[in-house]
Simulated scan of single mutants.
Amino acid sequence: MLLAILTLLVGLVVLIVGGELLVRGAVRVAERAGMSQMLIGLTIVGFGTSSPELVASIEAALAGSPGIAWGNIAGSNLANSLLILGVASIIFPLAVLRGQLWRDGGLALIITAALWYIANNGGITVAIGFGFLAIMGVYLGYVYWAEKKYHITDTAVHEKAEALELADTHLHMDQPIWRSVLVLFAGIALIILGGKWLVESAIDLARMIGMSEAVIGLTVIAIGTSLPELVTSVIAAYKKASAVALGNILGSNIFNLLLIGGITAIVSPGSIPVEISSFSLPLLVAASILLLILAATGRKITRWEGAVLLIVYLGQLLYSLTAI
């Protein structure tokens, strides 16, 4: 068991480091290739910062463990909406932009509710996976169009890129292109290797301690792969960039649901484990509604409201580990 735990931790660290290197290298290569900052933020930053969750879910799906894959998706969004948002709000109350809240938070709520319905009515199909990816494409197209034509910059994807810049002061260091390419490929290699170690050790650990793979995905893997988002959101809150902190969380939720959920559905269609469909997804719907209510009533998420979110997360975490 000790070896499985150690391998899981090493895999998690390698996965996160690989994701960081992937984003750094890809952004620098894209800049040298003449890509606009807007396109870099929409594509490379958005996809790259979600790479730990993406690789972990794909590895789990390919390994025949959809419970880990879907547990990681639902668990990561719970961590984003309750744990990370709660911690960030305690550090500095998060002001909420109405357009960002209803557009991005509303989209995340609708997709979560749809996933919950699908999970209890026939399960996930390849067609649903492609549908999720199509919605992701339409959303990114809308963000690009709105930002270019109307200079709307409060979208979750834009704030996700801003959060990364706040957290990583070395992102745009001037360095030779060959070094950026090397960093990019090193990142790709590390996330693949780290994801493989993480999933294999998680499967072994679940069998050893008699815990379902879905719970492992909901807890250990979800928290681990959400650590980069926690760091960037906390730094944004500490720097009083509250809109950036909230947008980073909403953007992560959208990418997790549509991009990672869509690819997972294509790779491993079928039923979603009951632990997720009967508890985690309805809780995620409730958390999304709670977020809209908290933000709409006061136009900001206060410290005590952040404490409530954090308490709810710790409560569901304890329930997942003991009752499911």
Rank of each mutant, 00 (worst) to 15 (best):
residue 178 W to S: 14
residue 244 V to F: 00
residue 262 G to V: 07
residue 244 V to G: 01
residue 208 M to T: 14
residue 292 L to T: 00
residue 18 G to F: 05
residue 226 S to I: 10
residue 103 R to Q: 10
residue 145 W to P: 03
residue 299 R to Q: 14
residue 11 G to K: 13
residue 97 L to T: 11
residue 107 L to P: 09
residue 94 L to G: 04
residue 18 G to S: 11
residue 19 G to N: 11
residue 244 V to H: 01
residue 42 L to A: 07
residue 176 P to G: 06
residue 245 A to M: 08
residue 105 G to I: 00
residue 8 L to D: 11
residue 72 N to Y: 04
residue 17 V to C: 09
residue 12 L to W: 10
residue 84 I to D: 01
residue 216 I to D: 07
residue 142 Y to L: 10
residue 256 N to H: 01
residue 196 K to C: 09
residue 238 Y to I: 08
residue 40 I to N: 06
residue 41 G to I: 11
residue 258 L to W: 02
residue 65 S to Q: 14
residue 123 G to V: 04
residue 231 V to P: 03
residue 311 I to F: 09
residue 4 A to G: 09
residue 184 L to N: 07
residue 104 D to I: 07
residue 217 G to A: 05
residue 20 E to F: 08
residue 301 I to Y: 07
residue 250 L to N: 00
residue 61 A to H: 08
residue 229 E to A: 12
residue 254 I to V: 06
residue 189 A to S: 13
residue 305 E to D: 04
residue 94 L to A: 04
residue 225 T to C: 02
residue 20 E to N: 15
residue 262 G to L: 01
residue 115 L to M: 11
residue 259 L to M: 15
residue 65 S to D: 08
residue 128 I to H: 05
residue 30 A to D: 09
residue 286 A to H: 02
residue 57 S to G: 07
residue 38 M to V: 15
residue 5 I to C: 12
residue 231 V to Y: 06
residue 58 I to N: 11
residue 7 T to R: 14
residue 275 E to R: 11
residue 220 V to S: 07
residue 12 L to E: 12
residue 306 G to T: 06
residue 44 I to L: 05
residue 149 K to H: 15
residue 221 I to T: 11
residue 161 A to D: 02
residue 67 G to Q: 06
residue 323 A to L: 11
residue 120 N to S: 04
residue 49 T to D: 01
residue 322 T to W: 08
residue 310 L to H: 06
residue 71 G to V: 11
residue 160 K to W: 11
residue 66 P to Q: 04
residue 130 F to A: 13
residue 55 V to L: 10
residue 80 N to D: 05
residue 152 I to T: 12
